[in-house]
Write a protein that binds this DNA or RNA. Sequence first.
DNA 1: CTGTTAGCGCCTTCAA
DNA 2: TTGAAGGCGCTAACAG
Lengths: 347, 347
Amino acid sequence: MKDKSVTIRDVAAAAGVSTATVSRTLDPDGAGGVSEKTRLRVFEAAAGMGYRANPAARSLKTRSARAVAVVAPELANNFFMDLADGIERELSARGYTLLVASSDNSVEEEKKRVAMLADRMVDGIVVIPAGVRGDHLTALDRNGIPVVLVDRLIEGAGIDAILSDNETGARELTRRLLEDGFRRIVFVGGDKAISSARDRIAGFKAAMGEAGLHTGRDSLCLGGMGVNDGFRHMDAILKSDRLPEALVAVNLLVHLGMERRLLARLPRRRGEGYMPVIAAFDESDYSPFLPACRYTAAQDAAAIGKEAVQRILERIGQKRGGADAAEVTGPKIIRLPVMIMRHFQDR
Amino acid sequence: MKDKSVTIRDVAAAAGVSTATVSRTLDPDGAGGVSEKTRLRVFEAAAGMGYRANPAARSLKTRSARAVAVVAPELANNFFMDLADGIERELSARGYTLLVASSDNSVEEEKKRVAMLADRMVDGIVVIPAGVRGDHLTALDRNGIPVVLVDRLIEGAGIDAILSDNETGARELTRRLLEDGFRRIVFVGGDKAISSARDRIAGFKAAMGEAGLHTGRDSLCLGGMGVNDGFRHMDAILKSDRLPEALVAVNLLVHLGMERRLLARLPRRRGEGYMPVIAAFDESDYSPFLPACRYTAAQDAAAIGKEAVQRILERIGQKRGGADAAEVTGPKIIRLPVMIMRHFQDR
DNA sequence: CTGTTAGCGCCTTCAA
DNA sequence: TTGAAGGCGCTAACAG
């Protein structure tokens, strides 16, 4: 907001060329026919005067802002921000800016935020969907603002997505428990509306099936993806007749809730009473401290972020180039492997 | 990016008024002399056509973008994102957009990001400083882009700041340990370059002094604010002659590192050998699970975020109004209280 | 390879 | 209270 901000005209005057030449020289996409001599002169002049292109003016003209947005259900979530971090790193390396907005776990809010971002002419939006509805995203994508889904899929929306291989992850997690000799295993949490949860449930069932175990009502405590849901389910389990030997938690938060419920039991003395083993999706810095936690499926947030950026910039490039082959190919869905980690607790 | 984006002219035509009238009617600051009748007509037309003002064009003209940026040392940090969440909530309620960027814990990077954001004509920047240097921020603030520091202070920079009352927090934390009967207490971690660390150290010393205890070399393990630093310090402590009875951790990460080191000991069986008690800054969802953690000082991230937004919008308003009284008053520094929490572990 | 020109969509005097 | 007109800083044809 410096009053004396130096414009392209000042640079042009100083370098003794036209504004058009300066513009071409300083084109971020670097594709301009400018002679080496003038290019040098312009660069020098620009640097000397501390010229900085005005992005608003540029946007107004080019209808693009060299910015990409991320919309996450919440900001204060470790996994989402790991993703954002990866995205930011990748993006800034290529001269793009990242905007972040929170949908506050609401599709309504997500709609608003996405609209606002579209207004701000971001070149693309990475969305961690808050729910199952994706019409607003599909519309955006069709209208020329590329959208890439991350972490969760919206079925039938026809939008590219980068995910973890949730089914395989859950199957592996369950297999480990089976290999350890557990038989009475219960899956906890999981909103059927959310694709990752569905896939994880499927993986669990598959592994149980392989072992010849039936997965009926009493081996599934479905519903919810939050801390309270985990707490609630664990509570119910503790009050049930047949205590499971092991549990599979659908995600970090449900896992946390379950551990909380276990911690809250009286008497607090460890080693007394029932203590199940938990295998959970999502590794965190604190996993080693959770008393029941034996296995986690660690998602590679950095890789997902990187892949998402790559995909969205590719799409942005295509749009500029005018190619529209993507629609024919159908949405591209990438599933990245997870890593199973073992935690040793003093049990 | 819609090809057929509806502009102010379309609305003007539809409503049968001039573009100037539409502009006045839709002024976000609401201060325009427009008759109720035309205002209604314009609103109706705008809504009917789905008009959305183009922020780039508006920015170009007004040199403001109704956007505020947050620059944090890292995104994948619970406390910082709690702050960001609070800021976002407050901001979007007032029609502002939040941009988030990471300085990657480097002042150099912070400089670059801040410059980029200034180019994008954000109206103000909330910074969680990466280090002690703040010239670039002071310059910005003087040049008309309000800057508010959060969580950490930069001495002598003359910039407004919203902080926790770190000294009182650390003193309280230490007092609790003393009340519990501990005498050999060591403070762990803390970069002297970071104001919050300095204040916390001072609080520790004050409490110890009150109790008539000396705080010499052997009661301070200073240096570092990260997980590795905590680990390293705890390692050294375990190898020392006189094991402290209790420890004060400078922040969440150092605390985590310390707990990790304790966890890593062999034999892994709990209850064997030495187990100190820790009082740490920063409460998290996982604090109840950390075996050594007895007290935490919980910062009120939401309140800090809210306060920061309020302050920065105030400054933005002043700037528009042309008032410059702030410079006379000197920087405003607000210290918010922390809450001491007790954790009961099965020890 | 470089300059000229005409806006992008909006806001804001200045008159009416 | 309203309208007309002139840019904000930049880019993208189109000439030269």
